[in-house]
Computed example of a mutant assay.
Amino acid sequence: MSGNNSSRWSNETDLIPVSLPGSVLICTIVSSSLSIFGAVLIFVTYCIVTVAKNQTRRLLVYLTIADLLTAVGNLMGAVRYTLRDESEYINKRDQMAVNCTNTDQICVIQSSITTFSSLASFFWTNIIMVHILMTLISQREWSRFFIKVLYHLVSWGVPLVITFLAASMQALGEDFSISSGPWCWIKGCLKPGEVIFWMTFTGKGWEILTYFLTMTFYILMKFYMIKKKMRFKDRSQNHLREEDELYIMIFFVIVILRVVGTARYFMAVTKAIDDNLLHSFGQTDMVLLHIQSVGDSAQAFCNCILFCVRDTDVRRELWKRICACRLSPDERRPLVTEVNSEVN
């Protein structure tokens, strides 16, 4: 995959600008930083809030670990891009057009991190939707030991294998912002067909599959909820937990945040198929690049909003814990007792 075959894309200076606008870097850095903050807040909240320790919320924490790695990787890529020497960058681009084996090891490491974490995020998103669906159907926590082990084997193991294959085939590296932001992914010096294949295999194919699967799970859950509500007029007999209804919103989160990146992927596919369209998407692609630079790094921050703000039980207990920290030991004791009694 990484011979001396130069890519048409690596020689298109109009399509691949030497310098990305500073606004793209700012979008990535701000979005990634917010997600890192949001992920840390989720972890802290999960540790100190007793009511947060159920299986649905625990799965969201695992999803957040993956999204945190993505945010860290994208931030790492943006900082690397900001600190690069522009003349050296141009030389590397020209060298890679001749010899595709030349690449930046930091770029490869960052690409490996974000490839693995993005894939893990897709798998954990699907697993959360499956878990909620089965919990709603069975009306009890669907958390057998075997199921838990299977969750981790699939969500961490499959992305690890895919990332290892891509890295061993030397497909990961500097992509010159083809279907990504100011971070690295698939080497842009490969042949267009090879670039599209690795984009699909290491991310976009699984991302599109996640859209359809989560949409299917969402429709099934809403149908089930409507059916139960029609059967039980009294909501107290319904047994549908509010947190389950809340966390099916991750379907909308992943679609809204990543659909622009998917659109840029299809634009890249179109460019690879038709030479005449190579320059047709320049302005549109740059607008979409700004949006993608925010969306691809923002999922951990959106998880934080769901977990710490929109989840009423978690928000209420977290606020009481925060208030208790401001009080003296004598004043704090009754409030902590009240929180623990509510949980029990």
Rank of each mutant, 00 (worst) to 15 (best):
S2T: 14
N4P: 13
S6R: 11
S7R: 05
W9S: 14
D14R: 05
L15D: 00
L15K: 05
V18S: 10
P21I: 05
I26C: 04
I29C: 04
S31C: 03
S33K: 05
S33W: 02
F37C: 10
V40M: 10
F43K: 08
T45K: 00
T45E: 06
V51E: 06
V51D: 01
N54A: 08
R58E: 04
T70Y: 03
V72D: 00
V72F: 01
G73E: 04
L75N: 01
T82I: 13
L83G: 13
R84S: 14
D85R: 12
S87L: 15
I90H: 09
K92D: 15
A97M: 12
T103R: 07
C107S: 15
I109T: 07
Q110S: 13
Q110M: 13
S111L: 07
I113V: 12
T114P: 00
S118K: 07
F123L: 09
T125W: 14
M129V: 10
V130F: 15
H131N: 13
I132R: 01
L136H: 11
I137D: 14
F145S: 06
I147T: 11
I147G: 10
K148W: 12
K148D: 08
H152C: 14
H152G: 07
L153R: 05
V154Q: 08
S155Y: 02
P159R: 01
P159Q: 00
I162V: 13
F164Y: 03
L165C: 09
L165E: 11
A166H: 02
M169Q: 06
I178Q: 14
C184H: 09
I186M: 15
L190E: 00
G193N: 15
G193T: 12
F201Q: 13
F201W: 02
T216W: 05
Y218V: 06
M221N: 03
M221E: 02
M221K: 03
K222V: 01
F223C: 09
Y224A: 03
M225W: 10
K228L: 13
M230D: 07
R231Q: 11
D234V: 10
N238E: 11
I254P: 04
L257A: 01
L257Q: 01
V259S: 02
Y265C: 06
M267N: 05
A268K: 08
A268S: 15
V269D: 12
A272T: 14
D274I: 12
D275Q: 12
D275F: 10
G282A: 07
Q283T: 08
T284I: 10
M286Y: 08
H290I: 09
Q292E: 02
Q299A: 03
F301E: 05
L306P: 06
C308W: 00
V314C: 08
V314A: 04
W319I: 06
I322F: 07
D330R: 11
V339F: 01
